[in-house]
Simulated assay, not measured.
Amino acid sequence: MAKGEETRQFIIEKAAPIFNTKGIAATSMSDIMEATKLSKGSMYVHFENKEVLACAAVDYNVKVLSSKLQAALSKAKTSKEQLFAYIDFFSDPLQPPVMGGCPLLNFGTEADDTNPIVKEKVNTAIRGGQQLLSGIIENGIKNKEFKSDLVPADFATAMFAMLEGGHLMARMSGNNAKMHIISKTLKNLIDQNSI
Rank of each mutant, 00 (worst) to 15 (best):
D191W: 00
C55Y: 11
K77E: 08
M179I: 03
L53I: 01
K68R: 13
E13Q: 12
Q95P: 00
K184L: 09
Q131M: 14
M179R: 05
L94W: 06
L65H: 07
M162I: 03
N106L: 05
E120L: 09
M29D: 14
E138M: 08
Y60Q: 07
M43T: 02
T27P: 07
R127F: 12
G108C: 04
A111M: 05
S74P: 00
A153T: 12
K144G: 03
A85D: 01
A161S: 15
A111P: 06
G166S: 05
P152E: 06
S39D: 11
I12N: 07
L83R: 02
P93E: 10
A25Y: 09
V58T: 03
E13D: 15
K187V: 01
K37A: 12
Q130L: 01
N175P: 04
I141Y: 03
N123Q: 12
T36W: 15
A15Q: 04
I12V: 14
P97I: 08
A170V: 03
V122P: 07
I141R: 00
G41F: 00
L186K: 02
L189W: 07
G135K: 08
S42T: 14
L65E: 06
S67M: 03
F47D: 03
T157C: 09
K187R: 10
D88A: 14
L168N: 11
S74H: 03
C55I: 05
M29V: 12
H167Y: 15
K147R: 10
I117T: 14
N106I: 05
E138D: 11
K63A: 12
M159D: 02
M172K: 13
Q82F: 05
A170Y: 04
T109Y: 15
A153Q: 15
P152L: 05
E110C: 07
G129L: 06
S39N: 09
N20C: 09
A26R: 15
A156W: 02
P96I: 02
E138P: 01
K37G: 13
A56K: 12
I126S: 10
L186M: 09
E120F: 06
T7W: 08
L73C: 01
P97D: 11
M159E: 07
G165A: 04
I195V: 13
K14N: 10
N115L: 12
K119R: 14
G165M: 05
V45G: 04
K37H: 15
T36V: 08
A111F: 05
P96L: 09
V62Y: 03
E81D: 06
L133F: 07
K178C: 10
N106T: 04
T7E: 11
F90G: 04
E110T: 06
C102R: 10
K80G: 03
T7H: 09
I11C: 04
M1N: 07
S183M: 00
K75Q: 12
T157R: 13
T7I: 12
N143E: 15
A177S: 13
S183N: 06
M43R: 03
A153E: 15
S67F: 00
A76S: 02
N175Q: 08
E138Y: 00
E34Y: 11
L168G: 04
Q95W: 06
I195T: 13
I18Q: 05
T7N: 12
L132H: 05
I141V: 05
E34Q: 15
G4T: 11
I141H: 01
M172R: 15
E6I: 10
I87Y: 04
K119D: 05
K121V: 00
